[in-house]
């Protein structure tokens, strides 16, 4: 069996950009899974928080595109408070979202809000969701 030990140029670039944008070092993760066992939204996720980190470590950008899990992060920082390596996983998820989002297109923009909800929504929810999921 052949094991690839060297990253392709674009894979290396992706990992470096995630580390640079997030200010974290994804290589320090040793896949203990504490983040995934604490995350309150894993029940809805296609890949788990530790798998997001693993895919970044391997430079697998294309496998992260379209992942629902990246958009289920509520930035509650439960993962960060439990990570034995001190990685802020929410920062990594935000960096990945930034890099893979289709350019100029919102994941969740104002057009997604149903008119009947517009009156009752607290301002901070609108500001927060656009900050997170739109350009």
């Amino acid at each position: 069996m052949r094991i690839k030990l060297k990253f392709e140029e674009n894979e290396k670039k992706f990992i470096d950009r995630v580390n640079e944008l997030s200010g974290e070092n994804v290589y320090s993760c040793y896949q203990c899974g504490n983040c995934s066992s604490g995350c309150p939204f894993v029940f809805e996720m296609d890949i788990l928080p530790n798998q997001i980190i693993r895919l970044v470590q391997m430079g697998r950008e294309e496998e992260l595109i379209g992942s629902k899990a990246l958009f289920l992060c509520a930035s509650c920082f439960t993962c960060q408070s439990r990570c034995p390596k001190g990685i802020n996983i929410a920062n990594v998820a935000e960096a990945v979202r930034h890099l893979i989002e289709p350019k100029g297109k919102d994941y969740f923009g104002p057009q997604e809000i149903p008119a009947e909800l517009a009156d009752e929504l607290p301002q901070q929810a609108l500001v927060a969701v656009y900050r997170k999921f739109s350009k």
């Binding site: 029940f43 958009f71 509520a74 969740f108 809000i113 929504l121 927060a128 969701v129 997170k132």
Partner: peptide, 20 residues
């Protein structure tokens, strides 16, 4: 007491937020 209630996901993923 320290779990997330769903936060802004109640707009973008209402079902997941309802469960939380």
């Amino acid at each position: 007491k320290q779990e997330c209630c769903g936060s802004y996901l109640s707009l973008s993923m209402p079902d997941a937020a309802s469960e939380a």
